[in-house]
Computed example of a mutant assay.
Amino acid sequence: MASNSVRGVHLVGSVCLPSTEEVFRQVTSHLPNRLRRIPDGETQHRQAFTFFQQGAFSAAPEVLKKYDASFNVAPSEPVSAEQLAAVVEKLRGEDVMRTRYDTHAIESYATFCQLRDEGVIPAGVRFQVSLPCPVDVVVLVAEPYQAALEPLYEAALVRDLKKIEASIPAHDLAIQWDVASPFAMMEGVVWPHFAPYVADANQHIKDMAVRLGSAVSPGVELGFHFCYGDIGHRHFVEPKDLGRIVDVAADIFARIDRPINWIHVSAPKDRTDEAYFAPLQRLPLGATELYLGVVQPRDEEGTRRRIAAAAKVLQNRGFGVATECGMGRTPPEDFVPTMEVAAAVAAPIS
């Protein structure tokens, strides 16, 4: 039986299924009347979060970090001012750096519409596009180039956001900004990817999030996914509590002059204590939907313990549930058990 405080399920983005159509069919079947939005699952080459974004730098491949078989990063070679300027020039221009998020979204939306016409996807459910914050991509770039290339990548990302908005009606579209690697930088986790390349990582990331949220057009839904990553099913660092996430979210709420329709926050599997969720008390949610990443496959009991701890903190404030992060790197055999737990603990939204 679902908790009285829990209504609805959120899908963060990636799903461990082979195709967009399979994602749409499977999640609507397993989560009836529990989804306000559905992503395309970021299937196939997109399942490893932002790694496919290395292609955005194809005009200057020398800027990318070099990894060995153990995922260690080779030391960066020194770069002269002239070399840096030459790379920036190669990657400048609207037709050079392409994220392809627009291409994938527009193709997947056609499938979304077809399945909605067939009655597979309920009317009123929005098509969700999850986009990374620039830091989550620039961590793939070698350190000497990061600060110079971040603004170029952000501009490319916003250009492709606008192409998505031009191709998908606002009443059908929901944009989620994913914020993961920034929390590693703010926590001071450097190896293997996250050495800060700005003087004040906290302020830099807050300002970035405000710009990204403000770039989403009126009428398009806006959400944020905040987490501590998933490398080998481990976080960059185990957070003490949700304090740092709440600080970033509260800053966004204060400075974005448009509705924020939802936020998703991660919850480690072993945190069933109220202390982890306590910072949520100071988040001015208002009408914003809150989704907690408490769902774990084959662990309905533990999921309910995490829900109970959060419910005590949030008191009469309802919330929905989700997995900690995207499911792109989840073993396929865990997909159905994950959906079963989510459906068991969350009531329908209507």
Rank of each mutant, 00 (worst) to 15 (best):
V23Q: 03
E300Q: 09
D95N: 11
M97I: 06
P196N: 11
R92D: 11
G223W: 04
L131K: 00
Y101D: 03
E77V: 15
P18N: 06
N202Q: 15
E94T: 04
R234D: 15
N72G: 11
V295S: 02
N202K: 12
D251V: 07
R159L: 01
L222G: 08
F277E: 12
T50M: 05
G243R: 04
Q176W: 11
E289D: 14
A311R: 08
F277P: 05
L212H: 05
P144L: 01
L314K: 04
N72L: 04
W191D: 15
K206W: 07
I245P: 14
A105W: 10
A308Y: 08
Q315W: 04
C133G: 09
A123N: 09
P218A: 03
L157P: 01
D102R: 00
H104N: 13
H171T: 12
F183Q: 10
I256S: 04
A170H: 07
K312A: 11
G213I: 05
F127G: 01
T20F: 08
P284E: 13
Q176D: 10
I175T: 11
P218V: 05
V198L: 12
L292D: 08
F194D: 12
E274S: 07
V12F: 02
V27F: 04
Q128A: 08
V158H: 02
E118M: 10
Q296C: 12
A267W: 04
E165S: 02
N316D: 14
P32W: 01
A60S: 10
L292E: 03
A174I: 11
W262G: 10
V87T: 10
V120A: 05
R258H: 02
C16P: 13
M327R: 09
L242N: 12
A156E: 00
E22F: 01
N202P: 14
A86K: 05
M339R: 01
M1A: 13
C16K: 09
E143G: 08
A166M: 06
K163E: 06
L131C: 01
A170S: 05
V141H: 00
V23Y: 01
K163R: 13
R25A: 01
T288H: 04
L35V: 13
F277G: 05
E324M: 08
V321H: 02
V73F: 00
T323A: 02
F224P: 03
E94D: 11
V190D: 14
A105R: 04
P182Y: 08
P132W: 01
L314V: 04
K65A: 15
T288E: 08
V141A: 06
K240Q: 15
S3D: 14
R7G: 06
P239M: 09
V265C: 10
K240E: 15
A86F: 01
A201K: 07
F71H: 14
K240N: 15
I38E: 02
A81T: 13
